[in-house]
Amino acid sequence: MPDDASVTSSLAAKIEWLIQNRWPAGSRLPKNNVEAAAAISEATGEDLSSTTIWKLRTGRSDNPQLKTLKGLSTFFGVPIGYFGDDDEAEETADRVAASSLVGESGLNREALRALVELSDGGRQLVADFIISAARLEQGREKAGEA
């Protein structure tokens, strides 16, 4: 998952993050914008073109119609505030990230409760470990691209 700054930095980054991280379970990721637009349109009834999806994903459009945002919000199961550029967007991105983890990666409610019950020092240790592990994986991914 990208760091918080990249998730909330632009509408294009937010939409790309949703496609990569919140695509409906059991469905394969779209290979292109045509597939993405078709899946979103079919699921929501909102007619989105592949050109609209392309413009949004590439940042060529950063002021979509409200009906487009409502369709994306419905499809990805996020509040429409996620697409804003204020504090609500960052908070929503955090909630979206947390809800994506629960049940999908072995991080269950029991683990979350245990985390809450840790001391401040224990929670900080866990947070430091998670950040270190993410940086390690990002470094491996970049090394594989070279």
Rank of each mutant, 00 (worst) to 15 (best):
G71A: 13
S73C: 09
I40W: 03
R28M: 13
T58V: 03
E35M: 13
V34S: 12
A111Y: 05
S73Q: 09
E110L: 12
V78Q: 13
A37T: 00
E42V: 08
A38Q: 12
G71W: 06
K55T: 02
T68G: 01
A39H: 04
E90M: 09
F83T: 05
D120F: 07
G26K: 06
D85Q: 12
Q65N: 13
E104M: 04
E88D: 11
K67N: 13
L107P: 00
R109Y: 11
A38E: 13
R113H: 08
L107N: 10
V102P: 01
G81C: 06
G84S: 13
V34F: 07
L56C: 04
E42L: 11
D86N: 14
S99K: 10
S73E: 09
R57S: 00
L118C: 12
E117L: 08
P24S: 06
L69K: 06
G59P: 04
S119L: 08
S41G: 13
A98V: 13
S105V: 10
T74K: 15
R28P: 01
E88I: 04
A36G: 01
A98G: 10
D86H: 09
G26F: 04
G59V: 03
S99Q: 14
L66T: 08
R109A: 12
E90Q: 11
R60P: 02
E90W: 08
P64T: 03
L69C: 09
G106K: 05
R60A: 03
S100K: 05
Q65C: 06
